[in-house]
């Protein structure tokens, strides 16, 4: 019984203490903050937006700035999303929130947070990873052929786009947020093809890929012909694409390389285009290499 009384008196004391700490204005501000702001703004660390401590630091001596900003926010931080307007809360209530922010952070010192980097950086990456890639269409796929040679396949245009050697990918610029970034290649490109399917100027249809011994066999259709492509590498400056098709007609292959060179296993090359007879078109390979021929 004694314990219960002690508990009740502590409860009363706690409530009295809390009531003393926040003015009615600040109390209102606290509940408004909980409803409207807390999901994105924590007391002392950046969540989606800056912490209350940082906000108080920015607007020290100019509290009205919090209201003005919140009514019609802009975008200040490159890596953060734009804050949605809080005009539905209203200026009066935003003032109460700002009063609460200053009270809640009283005596706290703002220390700039350091960027933490990718917490998953040390875990193995998928050898086939679809993601926003640099210098390719938005439906791109990174493929790691081995520890040293990697390539980008463009699923939009159904073509090999480029290869690089060195490390694989740093996906953190894409994954750290909502996808507003590009994968960073951890090496140097040695061959690059411009956007455009080399078999067809008309529409092409990407059909996905099979996984064969951990690597993709890409499938697509162009000009009525079904293609399958396997990619391999013999050395660090070379990638070979082996095509198998159901073509019963001659095909022309015209890669638009702006870096590196190519050669074909069969067919006839004229003015940068490879002509394949119907028979040759059933299976052939193209090798992409660094530098000129």
């Amino acid at each position: 019984m004694k314990n219960v009384w002690l508990f009740i008196s502590m409860l009363v004391l706690c409530q009295g203490y809390a009531a003393e700490k926040l003015s009615p204005e600040e109390e209102k501000g606290k509940s408004l903050y909980t409803l409207n702001c807390m999901a994105c703004h924590a007391l002392d660390k950046m969540v989606v937006g800056p912490s209350l401590v940082e906000i108080a630091h920015i607007y020290k001596g100019k509290a009205e700035g919090i209201v003005t900003w919140s009514m019609a926010p802009g975008k200040k931080r490159k890596l953060a999303i734009r804050m949605p307007p809080m005009s539905h809360v209203g200026e009066e209530r935003l003032k109460q929130i700002s009063s609460y922010i200053f009270k809640a952070t009283k005596g706290m010192k703002y220390v700039k947070e350091k960027s933490k980097g990718d917490p998953y950086a040390t875990f193995p990456k998928a050898k086939i990873q679809r993601m926003f890639m640099p210098d390719a269409g938005p439906a791109a796929i990174a493929v790691s052929l081995n520890e040293n040679v990697h390539l980008c396949w463009d699923a939009g245009t159904c073509q090999f786009r480029y290869a690089w050697n060195g490390g694989y990918i740093d996906p953190w610029p894409v994954l750290r947020g909502n996808g507003n970034g590009l994968v960073k290649l951890k090496g140097e490109k040695f061959v690059y093809a411009k956007q455009g399917n080399p078999f067809s100027k008309g529409p092409v249809k990407f059909n996905g890929y099979r996984v064969k011994q951990g690597l993709p066999v890409f499938m697509f259709k162009a000009d009525g012909v079904n293609f399958e492509v396997e990619l391999s590498t013999q050395n660090s400056n070379e990638v070979t694409a082996t095509f198998t098709t159901d073509s019963n007609k001659a095909l022309t292959y015209t890669p638009q390389l702006s870096q590196g060179s190519w050669s074909a296993s069969t067919g006839k090359v004229t003015d940068g285009s490879l002509s394949l007879t119907a028979d040759q078109a059933k299976k052939f390979s193209i090798t992409f290499k660094a530098g000129d021929k």
Partner: peptide, 20 residues
């Protein structure tokens, strides 16, 4: 999984992050 078959990709993409 060993087959990732494209079932439908007939919509556009600009690469803008908000095109979920």
């Amino acid at each position: 999984a060993d087959l990732y078959k494209t079932f439908y990709d007939g919509f556009g993409m600009t690469g803008n992050y908000h095109e979920f």
